[in-house]
Design a protein around this nucleic acid. Structure first.
Lengths: 293, 293
DNA sequence: ATCACTTACGGGTGACGTAAAAATC
DNA sequence: GATTTTTACGTCACCCGTAAGTGAT
């Protein structure tokens, strides 16, 4: 077996072509590299260099060696990377969700029950990505907006969310009991960029030019303050107090404007997250929705 | 990067479960191993062991580490293996042939022109294997009994060979000008085991029980001496003096009993072996066959 | 004279072994 | 008391840097 430091030095020489350049790159002196290359050749027992006119270069065998040295170093680095990643995963719980609201609601519960762990959340466009992410351990808990068929995961109903349009109280929609996406066509509507799968729903029913997408939530907040433009909202958000004075929120009647969320984890982790799923169930029971489906 | 000696020691511990057993396997002392495992853990910066009751074991991260350590060590060994193999290939010329005679004829030429190289010959059943072997560098020069279609290789006609049956001068076949495989059915015929593709030809035309296959050429020689059993021979063998007193060789008339050999190498090696191919051509010209096809 | 590599020499780190202690069964 | 791991200490190998040398452009 060849020690790693020799492979590193050899790989550097293979990359830079001269001992001097490689030694500068490695922050060692050039004679040290010269000695190491001799040692490597000695240990392999075969000639891997071509020496001529005080010029050192790789011979054919040396090129093969360089290729495999690179692979061996990569394998070494892979070890480090995977070990660190695994260690990190032990201290981290990754949550993936197709919508921001369930994450916001779940966060305090997670912090309560996973005190010593780092909680990492990610907003994902589609349930499909969430499910593959759950399987390949990118996520530990996922919040879906559809009931998955996969029996290999533990799944529990979470909450319902109903999208509304919040308009100025003088707006013609303000007195309506309900509106439809169709009626909203041609309006300019403020939308947060971080709304997960809702973005797909919006784009499905409205044209791109209707949506004033705001990546920064600060910018969104300021635009809501400064203008009378309508913006998207939801019953859950309003429940939590995200209502602006002088505005009225009108529910959107379309089927697509309603979502039922499901929380899921790998069945092997079912017990690990039992307390969290119990908290989820308790929330679901407390917030029995009028229009559960 | 982790030094190789640490990975070796770690992998040994992962295999044997205790420091003592692993240290005995590695021929180092147990305290040394203990210290190395500490160092490895230190360098990775994460916990990879579970220490309890003066018992050391891998934790979950440690198991991941062991898995990748094995891979890294394998990559290291691969480097050594491939470098040695490549170096060896530089000093070796590998010849593959579907028949023994062309190799015997070619050998002196090879030794003359490749003085500093090791010559390695192999008898192969089918041209197909020779061609794949030439491409994947298992062989450098191959002797085929059919003209290959592949244009990516340099190919040159070598020689013809005509198979005979050598019988006792008193045998009923002895006065015939020619015989056929069909006439030979039911006879017991001595056959060398090392005749390459000819074995397939024999088995195609004669039943297994007709053929007294001799793996050892000494045994074959002795049986020829001690008995009057017929055996296979060829015009080339007879030319070289392989004729036994009191025996007569009768050519076999079947199409299959005649072969034309072709020598081939990768086109990229064409110049490297030019001298050899010239010698082959000179042999072909010297031995213009009566029945070239 | 400059560039590139090799050789020679000395120093300090660290990998190893021995011996002994600690801890668990 | 036997087994296993850890700690302590001394030693030698070897990896490194500095400085000088060789050879070619």
């Amino acid at each position: 077996m060849i020690e790693t430091y020799l492979l590193e030095q050899f790989a550097a020489f293979a990359r830079f072509g001269t001992l001097l350049k490689a030694s500068e790159e490695l922050h060692i002196t050039q004679p040290t590299l010269s000695r190491s290359m001799k040692k490597l050749e000695e240990e392999l027992g075969v000639s891997i260099f071509h020496r001529e006119n005080s010029k050192l270069s790789l011979n054919e065998t040396g090129k093969v060696a360089a290729e495999y040295a690179k692979k061996a170093l990569q394998a070494n680095q892979d070890l480090i990377d995977h070990v660190l990643a695994h260690d990190r995963s032990l201290r981290t719980v990754s949550i993936g969700s197709s919508s921001p609201f369930p994450i916001n609601e779940l966060m305090p519960t997670l912090q309560e029950y996973l005190t010593e762990k780092t909680i990492l959340t990610e907003l994902v466009d589609t349930d499909e990505h969430l499910l593959t992410g759950l399987k390949n351990r990118r996520y530990d808990i996922i919040i879906l907006h559809s009931l998955p068929e996969d029996k290999a995961l533990y799944c529990q109903r979470y909450m319902d969310e109903q999208i509304c349009l919040t308009v100025d109280e003088n707006h013609s929609f303000a007195k309506k009991k309900s509106i439809s996406f169709a009626e909203m066509r041609g309006m300019r509507i403020l939308v947060s960029g971080r709304i997960g799968f809702w973005m797909d729903i919006c784009k499905k029913h409205l044209s791109e030019s209707d949506l004033l997408i705001q990546t920064s939530s600060e910018a969104l907040g300021e635009l809501i303050e400064a203008s009378t433009l309508p913006f998207f909202n939801s019953d859950r958000m309003i429940e939590m107090g995200y209502q602006t004075p002088g505005r009225v929120s009108v529910p959107i009647g379309d089927e697509d404007a309603h979502a039922t969320y499901w929380a899921a984890c790998r069945t092997s982790d079912q017990n690990k997250y039992r307390a969290i799923f119990n908290a989820v169930r308790s929330y679901t029971l407390r917030h029995k929705t009028r229009n559960s489906r």
